[in-house]
Design a binder for these strands. Structure first.
Lengths: 301, 301
DNA sequence: TCCATCCTCTGACTCTAGTCAGGCAATGCG
DNA sequence: CGCATTGCCTGACTAGAGTCAGAGGATGGA
């Protein structure tokens, strides 16, 4: 990693925490402790389970409970047991709570505005564009890839979403029964691997690797959730799968895809895959690709 | 201000504080309270006056003193009175303090590295570039402009720096006695105005406005410190002076400049100034500009 | 029915960060 | 020389943020 890059990141951190931090305290610290304000904000308009709330904000259960009671004492929220499971409690904003939340919202807007305010139009546009880039790439950097068993709930969630999306995007829908999709066992070691990508704990993508004995390795069921697109996740999946296939001694990786998936096709091209004649009878495939792998190396240089 | 822009800024704030904040705690919170760590860091290799230190970090004098004593107790710093003024005390790092500071430094590097680490080369380059943009523009937004008396120390500091720079850049040096530069009285209300730009309290630029009765308003002594260039400060000075001139009922603003100041000349062109024939006998001037002003409005739209 | 488990709440703590009022020594000005 | 000012230090506080252990009701399975 580049020294100049590290320095730039550090300067960025310093400037941003200073500037945003000071204003943050100025605007949001005014009324009520930030702990309470964050909680109030996270409850949202529709209400939340206490458990979920705690999890999202990473709070200790005792601490969360105390905060909730202080908000309750101020008449901003009501807490009542869920009908279905009376152990779980649901928080809802009262009218006063909604008003308070709107006020916090307004102050957040002011904060954002005060960052832009001293700048002229061109500078504003440039700052906002750069912020969008930073945000997108930092989000990309928080996504984690993990090899899991394809039978796990989050893996299955991704696979269902994958099938649903194919059903929507293919001209004639998608019937898993007609397809050559591997059964989960083929994507489980030692016959394959299965990766799940997570963002803040939520599964946002998956990719399978089939390692049939005596045949080239194959990419299967690669999917990225709509909210996680444009983060370079597809490219990252491919790089990771290539590394793993190479780690298993494979020298060729291949895949098939449907003509409706144009973004995927562009991705394969730009990742160095070459289009080749059909190597299977997959009825939903229109294009077949392969890529020759180098000898095993670390997953990312 | 644009709703979409505000939203983008808020998303940015959320993502950055989350991502950087978590890692910050992870890497820097390990060893000693952040207050102490920040102080240790700010002391720097050469040592500092306690007063300066406090000012930079915005600490209460009592609090700073306490932190210093705790560092002293750990053998990381020594505090001793300055010889010249024994009320002022100077902090210096001991060998152990230097080591600790280096450790903090290393962890800051790790933090920066961990932000980049999951990204590929192209993404890294893009992130770093966007961060540089954000940093530059946020810095630009922290610069404040203030109308001050040109006799004040920070104003005089700028004027000295201005003259020194002209001396360096003009082919034959710069002798203030030969120039038509106004005396400070001409840049003081009601005969004129004088602006100083400040970044974190330090003066980083100045610009004067001459309002001679019966003659067009004139820009004088505009200067931006090297460390504050590329922040759009010149453009901002001009906009502010135009607004003030218009506020005084003036409809024409003019200025002269030397051919060595090419960046300034580009600026005048791009801000809507037209080159005109010489309107004075300034021996150091090679170009003369003027701009017609609209009716008074708020300084910035 | 009993027991383990889950979810939330309570009380008793701790640690940081920071404020405020006053005190002491060094300094500078008249 | 006397006195106000400056710079730093100390003690006494406060508030926020969070931890930990345990209590107690609700639930589900054996």
């Amino acid at each position: 990693m580049d020294r100049a890059q590290i320095d730039q990141v550090r300067r960025f951190n310093r400037t941003v925490t200073e500037r945003v931090g000071v204003l943050h305290d100025h605007y949001l610290g005014s009324d009520r402790p930030i702990g309470a304000a964050r909680l109030l904000w996270q409850i949202g308009e529709e209400g939340q389970d206490v458990r979920r709330l705690r999890e999202r904000l990473g709070l200790d259960s005792g601490y969360a409970s105390r905060l909730l009671r202080s908000l309750e004492a101020d008449g901003l929220v009501t807490v009542e047991p869920q009908p279905s499971d009376r152990r779980v409690r649901t928080v809802r904003l009262t009218a006063a709570g909604r008003a308070e939340r709107a006020a916090i919202d307004g102050r957040s807007d002011e904060l954002a505005g005060s960052l832009l305010e001293p700048l002229n139009t061109a500078q504003r546009a440039r700052l906002v564009a750069a912020m969008a880039d930073v945000e997108r790439l930092l989000t990309a950097a928080t996504v984690t890839l993990e090899a899991v068993d394809p039978g796990r709930p989050d893996a299955e969630h991704c696979l269902r979403a994958y099938a649903a999306e194919l059903g929507e995007r293919f001209q004639d829908g998608f019937d898993p029964a007609r397809s050559l999709l591997p059964d989960p066992g083929e994507l489980r070691p030692p016959r394959g691997e299965f990766l799940v990508a997570r963002l803040h704990g939520e599964p946002v993508g998956c990719a399978g690797l089939k390692l049939p004995p005596g045949a080239p390795a194959e990419v299967k069921r690669m999917w990225v959730a709509p909210q996680a697109r444009r983060l370079g996740l597809g490219r990252r999946f491919l790089a990771e799968l290539e590394a793993r296939a190479a780690g298993h001694g494979r020298t060729l990786l291949r895949l098939d895809t449907n003509k409706a998936l144009d973004a995927a096709i562009r991705l394969y091209h730009s990742c160095g895959f070459q289009e080749v004649p059909a190597f299977n009878d997959e009825p939903y495939a229109d294009h077949w690709f392969e890529k020759r792998l180098c000898s095993p190396r670390s997953p990312r240089s």
